[in-house]
Amino acid sequence: MSTLSSGLHCTIPPEMLYHLVQIHFGTATIVKDFSLLQGGLFNTTYRIQLEHASYTDVILRLAPERGEMPAGSASDPLFSFERTMMAAEPVVYEYYRKAGIPAPNIIACDASGSIIPRTYMFMEFIPSKQLNHSSISETDKERLYHQLGAYTAIMHQIEGASFGWPQGDGTIKGSDQWSEVLHSFAEETTRKAARAEYMPGVGEEITAIFMKNKDLFDQVTRPVLVHNDLWEANVLVHVKNGELNIAAIIDGDRSMFADREFEALLSTESVAFHEGYDCPLNPSAEGQARRLAYQILSSYFNAYVHEHQVNQPEDGQKYRQRTLDLLEQWKQVEHN
């Protein structure tokens, strides 16, 4: 399916692309070539080759167009955190850099909406391939997963002042209580699903989990940075010192300050990843219950997003079934 099947993914006229280049790189800059990159359903991404500029190979990413409806309302196609997440990306990568995690180089980010009604950013292109590239051997992949585990552990040492989503000005939009952030996220997803008449009653069940078990989630008191979208396509690798190494962890725009175990990648069965991460998951009944609740919320969110936001019904169906299966597991936990 083409990336253009998503209603959020929206190209810009070449004239606007040239205009944005000239604003940020100077009027003497020449666009030698540009191409629309495939694979994204949310942001629209171009690779641009430049002449007479301080950078010769750059990426331009544009967030979806801004709507007229109030942010966070059921009729808004975007979630409230999605409205501000690209503007927060430079802040996230600064955290990475300070901690020694390889990150993209952001050249410019404009969230003003004054030139185009979208947040956009220019980044330096990184010659690399994604971790899911078919040319990577199993041996190399094991070593890269070990490296990814080590970087994820470093990321989970970065503490925030509260739970929630980082903002472009360095603040965090959320709460001192982890349960409140989870409840609010579940509630917003439920509102949007109800408006679309999607999975009726399920969102209410999920929201109730976070309301009834407030104390369970508030046992977590340390908000740390989690990537929230850490899968192979968002890990770039390149050859350095004669072997493949991680070049950058990208697409950090969904990052939030959360329980470290909210990071979905921690549920991977990769031994190499966990050896690199070197910090066992909470083995208690409470820890296991929290992780199950996180999986339910994440799966429900993904079901709605794939079905109604980015028009990927096949994936939506998989997440829908997974949500229902996980909810059944939760009922077993409740009854025991």
Rank of each mutant, 00 (worst) to 15 (best):
A88K: 02
G39K: 09
G40E: 00
S73R: 05
L131Q: 03
I106H: 13
E275K: 06
G276M: 01
L4D: 14
A208I: 14
N132T: 07
S2Y: 15
M121S: 15
P223T: 06
L292M: 08
E275S: 07
R195P: 08
T45P: 02
R61E: 04
H274I: 08
Y95D: 15
A303W: 05
E328L: 10
V224A: 06
T119D: 11
N105R: 11
A74G: 05
P102N: 05
P13V: 15
A87I: 15
G168H: 14
M199T: 14
G164K: 02
A293G: 00
Y300E: 13
A71S: 06
N234Q: 11
P13K: 09
K240H: 08
A150P: 05
I209H: 04
Y120D: 05
F34R: 05
Q49Y: 08
E180H: 05
Q157E: 12
H238C: 11
R195C: 07
S162Q: 15
P313K: 06
N228V: 05
D278N: 06
D76V: 10
Y277S: 02
I136V: 08
L4M: 14
A272V: 07
C10I: 14
T268I: 09
E314M: 14
L131H: 04
E261C: 08
I115P: 04
W330G: 03
G174R: 01
Q309G: 07
L225I: 13
E180V: 08
V333I: 12
G26F: 13
A153I: 12
T56F: 06
T3P: 14
I59K: 00
G287P: 06
P283G: 00
I136Q: 04
E159G: 07
G100D: 02
Y198E: 07
K192S: 04
Y151C: 00
D251I: 01
G100Q: 04
D325E: 14
A150N: 03
Q167L: 11
L182V: 14
A53F: 03
I30C: 10
L324E: 11
C109V: 15
V239K: 01
E269P: 04
S255W: 02
P70T: 05
F42Q: 03
